Computed example of a mutant assay.
Amino acid sequence: MELTIDNSAYPYGTLIINMIGCFLLGFMYYFFVEAKKTINQLVAVVSTGFVGSFTTFSTFELEIFKMFQLDQYLKAISYFFVTMLSGLLFVFLGYCLSKLIIIKRKENK
């Protein structure tokens, strides 16, 4: 059995899953660490364990590798940068949403 990845299309599925994971990590980081002052080990278990298993970094790397094998250099490089930059954006957005929710909850008390 051979592992096949569709290299004809842009890997939107992997990109979307990774962005959801980035958003969740940003959200959980503020919620647990900044606002709740939770123990860092607990945050590491939840974030690395749950969200880390949800995201698909290894698939992302394999897709880039396969693109290079197929001489799809521009596609591989664009995919890399789109993923890295949008990942930072989604961490930031998750962080901001979590912060907004915490601030609103404090105001309503």
Rank of each mutant, 00 (worst) to 15 (best):
K36E: 09
I16H: 11
T38D: 02
K36M: 08
K36V: 03
Y30F: 13
C22A: 15
G49W: 08
V33I: 12
I16F: 15
A35G: 00
F27A: 02
I16V: 15
Y30D: 04
Y29K: 04
M28F: 14
V33F: 06
V46N: 03
V43R: 05
L42P: 03
L24V: 11
T48S: 14
K36G: 02
I20E: 11
K36P: 00
M19Y: 12
L25G: 04
G26E: 02
V43D: 04
L25H: 08
M28S: 15
M19S: 07
S47C: 15
L25C: 10
Q41T: 15
F31W: 13
V43F: 12
I16G: 10
L42E: 07
L24W: 12
G49P: 00
F31D: 08
E34S: 07
Y29A: 11
Q41L: 13
M19A: 07
F23G: 01
V33L: 07
E34G: 01
A44H: 14
N18H: 05
N18T: 04
I16K: 14
L42M: 12
K36Q: 11
V46G: 05
T38H: 02
Y29G: 02
S47W: 01
I20P: 06
F32E: 00
N40Y: 13
T48M: 14
I39Q: 13
F32L: 08
L25W: 08
Y30S: 03
C22V: 07
Y30R: 05
Y29M: 09
V46R: 04
I16T: 14
Y30I: 02
I17L: 12
C22T: 10
L15H: 10
I16R: 11
I17S: 07
E34D: 10
K37R: 08
G26W: 04
F31A: 13
V46M: 13
K37M: 03
F32H: 00
A35W: 01
